[in-house]
């Protein structure tokens, strides 16, 4: 467990977080390689099922990164995404996986530091929470 390296899926909006990730790269900012980025045209494009499938297939944490409030390229995709994330958090609490494995974060394209810091924070948080119980249970299953 002490060597646990979480796998984290970050759905990043093309107009903000994805560009912020580029910015972080060009500024040579370090952030953990645990975070696997999936570029989406808008955070509002991320459906509940995408988040669930990521967890079902073994991600230990998931976050959706969208534009700052009022800055969505498609008007309110980020707001819609926030509501969906809140819904999924509740569902995950209901099935004892824990809503805290999923987060919504907002940033602008210029916030390379925020992108890097979010990746660090999320990795730390999930490391503390431990592996996704879905994954560990199925591994135990295989071992048996």
């Amino acid at each position: 467990m002490e060597n646990f390296e979480p796998t984290i899926v970050a759905f990043c909006c093309h107009y903000c977080a994805y560009t912020a990730a580029d910015m972080a790269g060009s500024k040579r900012l370090c952030y953990p390689s645990n975070v696997k980025i999936i570029r989406v045209p808008c955070s509002g494009k991320v459906d509940s099922i995408h988040i669930l499938k990521a967890l079902e297939m073994g991600a230990d944490g998931v976050y959706v990164a969208g534009c700052l409030e009022g800055d969505c390229h498609f008007k309110n995709g980020n707001i819609e995404a926030s509501k969906r994330v809140a819904y999924i958090k509740k569902l995950l609490d209901e099935i004892n996986i824990g809503g805290e494995r999923v987060e919504m974060v907002l940033m602008s394209a210029g916030m390379g530091e925020r992108f890097a810091q979010t990746a660090v924070d999320m990795t730390e948080k999930i490391r503390k929470l431990g592996p996704n119980p879905v994954k560990s249970a199925s591994k135990a299953d295989h071992a048996a």
Partner: peptide, 21 residues
Amino acid sequence: RKEVGILSSALQMAFKTEGKN
């Protein structure tokens, strides 16, 4: 269809956390 997908995923995960399939 959408809710079927969500429930299916949630149920399967819930079972897995208890070591079942």
